[in-house]
């Protein structure tokens, strides 16, 4: 059990949940399974990527949006309440030897990337691209550590008007953008990830994406979180993911599922 130390609304769709816990130090991209309060009302734990981890204070945070009844109940949890917490689980982002790390986060998908940006080694150049519906929906930018942060909102209330993909097109068309040094990191809606993958293939750069699937156990035991592989068959998001090389995903199938 982990005691909730804070659960605050930090944007109009985003909440920051911080728990005191003894869990091992997570790698960026790994996730935790959080048990919901009122165990009678909900059955499955909900998976969330790690947004922050402070080893000394033993604090783990996730950034989540209200997507349905479970996350709605979660948003009403008060500090001092205890939630069951399992993790960290799965495989996080691998570190590309390339020098330019381009992180593309759509909506709440920015969460694991923000954690990744803070763990980037010295000597890496991080370009962080954030997409959100409006300024009010943008995740806490102060938690991102990057050489440059770019923002796009659908209504233009902050940064560029458009999607994070439009923003990406802009960023990569700058004359000093060097594809030969670039690696892409993405998390967000399936349409975004699919296009990111297409761009990576076209430019022949590595691309790592964090996937989502409905989970039961989170431990590779129930076979519930299967995603179709490009090479045929399935992989388990909780075990072989959630972060995978975008080349390994059957994108047609993945975009149909959600």
């Amino acid at each position: 059990m982990a005691e909730v130390s804070a659960n605050r609304q930090v944007s109009s769709s985003g909440f920051l949940l911080t728990m005191a816990t003894e869990v091992p130090s997570p790698d960026p991209g790994q996730f935790v399974m959080v048990g919901l309060p009122e165990p009678g009302a909900f059955f499955l734990r909900r998976p969330f990527s790690v947004f922050d981890f402070q080893a000394r204070r033993k604090r783990l945070s996730v950034y989540y949006s209200v997507a349905g009844p479970g996350t709605e109940v979660l948003s009403r949890v008060r500090p001092g309440e205890k939630l069951s917490l399992l993790g960290p689980l799965g495989r996080g982002f691998p570190e590309s030897p390339r020098r330019l790390h381009v992180m593309v986060g759509g909506g709440r998908g920015g969460a694991p990337l923000a954690f990744l940006s803070r763990r980037a080694r010295k000597g890496k150049r991080v370009l962080f691209l954030v997409g959100a519906r409006t300024e009010e929906h943008v995740l806490p930018l102060e938690r991102i550590r990057a050489s440059k942060i770019f923002v796009a909102t659908e209504d233009g209330s902050l940064g560029m008007r458009g999607t994070v993909l439009d923003l990406l097109e802009n960023v990569v068309s700058s004359p000093d953008f060097d594809w030969a040094e670039a690696a892409l990191y993405g998390c967000g809606p399936s349409a975004l990830l699919r296009k990111l993958h297409a761009m990576a293939v076209k430019r022949r750069v590595p691309c790592f994406v964090s996937l989502e699937a409905r989970m039961g156990c989170g431990l590779g035991a129930c076979q519930g979180c299967a995603v179709r592989k490009s090479s045929g068959g399935f992989f388990l998001v909780c075990k072989e993911g959630p972060v995978v090389d975008s080349l390994s995903v059957d994108w047609q199938s993945y975009s149909e599922v959600r």
Binding site: F43, G70, M215, A226, R228, G233, F234
Partner: peptide, 13 residues
């Protein structure tokens, strides 16, 4: 290999 995803859904209780 098993069935096409999604393979799990939560329903009341």
């Amino acid at each position: 290999q098993g069935n096409a995803p999604p393979r799990l859904a939560e329903v009341p209780s």
